[in-house]
Design a protein around this nucleic acid. Structure first.
Lengths: 351, 351
DNA sequence: TTGTAGGCGTTATCAC
DNA sequence: GTGATAACGCCTACAA
């Protein structure tokens, strides 16, 4: 017995009067062992509370049954759901999750991925926030399967689980156009806070917005494409919205990059005397839980976030079980949620 | 170079034309090495992208720079905050967090703690849900410091960070009594769903409720102490509340075990035609974020949850750095949040 | 069926 | 200053 109180395989071997090779056979019930001695050894193991040392085992086998998970944070409900789902699947396979947060800081993302590599995790699940993916490349070079969440990167070898952002935004915008809206504004997420920010999702959604307008021959007014800034959550800045409504053709609908902006917008419009949906229709995206508290119920697009996580783990485990298997890219689909924040546009032409 | 592409200390030693002992000295800038050779070695290390193998190192040193964190779950905002805070402090010390969830299942709690022991984490942070703490005892026996969050257990050797639940509930109840309330009901959390459920927090708060009433000579009506059940969130069950109001002395205030029940209660009262606070005052506990969406703003007690987490890590790191240091029990204090859900009781005696 | 030896990649302890 | 060498605890051959 070593000094820290934990028995080793040598202790068990000595107690059972066999060699550690035999103990090893008993532990992993391998063939070629007398069932009597096996039982005896197992009994001693039970009694002594022995379990093989994780690091020694990993050193010998090269496997760790640990995966590294990197998310932007966990106070955002979406990431909490992802985290929850990942943990659930890890538990089922008796894997353990090493979890760290990037907090949207590229350097930290890189450092965390490197630390996961150093700790020799079997694989990684990463929600990338940066476009500098050299650390992820190193993980791949170290033969660790990587699955990207929701964001794509130009990495041949990385798997990814994406959502059909374009299709989703198209559905939302088409919904407005079908309701007769012809002046539609867009509020994008905060893209420009970092030069290396991964704006994949922003680009996908905004591009679908443009394309859907064009396909429907709805005029695109580039002045009505706004970029949100986080300060707006707390500071009131009337000019941000008012410029939309000072134009001769004010929007009858505003599409938001995601729900949180839409929630903010409903209140901000109220503050300048505009009602949703009577004066302006508003749409969100993602279908976050907070929407249940918001009046009117927002029209949005439900992103199947739990499925994204579970699909990512399915892919990862598959790659771990058969290392030959090739990278996969999966695109999941969400559903339109029709709320009360959008109504038919008032036609300028009287009936 | 081994086959997986990652260089080892032997590779570096060979490349630098020195022994691995010297390389080791260079890595951990230990004394007794020629600064020239050191630089040369460091350059090669940089070039080859070498970093010491985590498992080999842990095997040799007995330290892992990893802590095991066990929470009930992470979709609850409170636990998400704890998780976030823990990760932040781990990152500062370059520790990694192994995270798992018990989902309020005692067996799972036990298994997770055991798996952390097996993986040889340096220490554990546990929010216990069960009163079966044999696994935690094993962790302590394996000389791994354990810090309990918010729940106490009769374990001599475990540290704990608690909140002054009694004082908090006393403040809330006294607030009502001072406002003239004499008929005060209480809705407890769901205690009886598991025989081994750790009802420490429930007991503390309920006990403070009783004691505060008694100290103020306010009659205690045991029939108005209810136990909530999760089904109530979805199913309407008029009898649950109506029995409170069928008595000759219906409550003028209802104290809830926590905010979520209070949120439910406000709506449930509304459903049976009672207004908050005009007809009944309601109090919550914890001050969760969702309250910002609830009207009226609930009177509650703010639990300093982030401080709980950071204090727990402070204690844990201290114990890791000086293993001699003794277990600690810290009790933090929150603050009363006076909302609009409580008003002065209407006096039966006319002025 | 069982025992033995070597290796996994470090760190630590000696000699030199 | 530097280089061997023995742990650390396990697994996997191969030998008996």
């Amino acid at each position: 017995m070593n000094d820290s109180g934990k028995p080793t395989i040598d202790d068990i071997a000595r107690l059972a009067g066999v060699s550690k090779g035999t103990v090893n056979r008993a532990i992993h019930n391998k063939p070629g062992i007398n069932s009597g001695t096996k039982e005896r050894i197992l009994a001693i193991i039970e009694e002594e509370g022995f379990s093989p040392n994780y690091h020694a085992r990993s050193l010998a086998t090269g496997r760790t049954e640990t995966i590294g998970v990197l998310l932007p944070d966990v106070e955002n409900e979406f990431f909490a759901m992802i985290c929850s789902e990942i943990e659930k699947m890890c538990w089922e396979k008796r894997y353990v999750m090493n979890l760290a947060f990037s907090n949207d800081v590229p350097d930290r993302e890189r450092a965390v991925v490197q630390s996961f590599i150093d700790r020799d995790v079997d694989g990684l699940i990463v929600f990338p926030v940066s476009q500098n993916y050299d650390a992820i490349e190193r993980a791949i070079a170290a033969e660790k399967p990587v699955v990207l969440l929701l964001n794509d990167l130009p990495l041949q070898e990385a798997s990814a689980v994406l959502v059909n952002e374009r299709g989703g935004m198209e559905t939302v915008v088409q919904h407005l156009i079908d309701a007769g809206h012809q002046q539609i504004a867009y509020i994008d997420g905060y893209v420009h806070y970092s030069g290396s920010y991964n704006d994949f999702i922003n680009r996908e959604r905004l591009r679908a917005f443009y394309e859907t307008l064009e396909r429907n021959h709805v005029p695109v007014d580039h002045g009505s494409i706004l970029e949100f800034r986080p300060e707006l959550y707390t500071k009131t800045e009337p000019a941000f919205l008012s410029r939309l409504f000072e134009s001769p053709d004010p929007p009858s609908a505003i599409v938001c990059f995601h729900d949180r902006i839409a929630i903010w917008l409903v209140q901000a419009l109220r503050d300048i005397g505009l009602r949703v949906p009577q004066d302006v229709s508003v749409t969100g995206f993602d279908d976050i839980r907070e929407l249940q508290y918001i009046t009117p119920r927002l029209t949005t697009y439900r992103v199947p976030i739990r499925d994204v996580a579970s699909e990512a783990l399915r892919i990862l485990f598959q790659q771990l079980e058969q290392p030959s298997s090739i990278r996969q890219r999966v695109v999941l689909h969400g559903t339109l949620v029709e709320g009360a924040s959008t109504i038919a546009a008032i036609s300028l032409t009287p009936d």
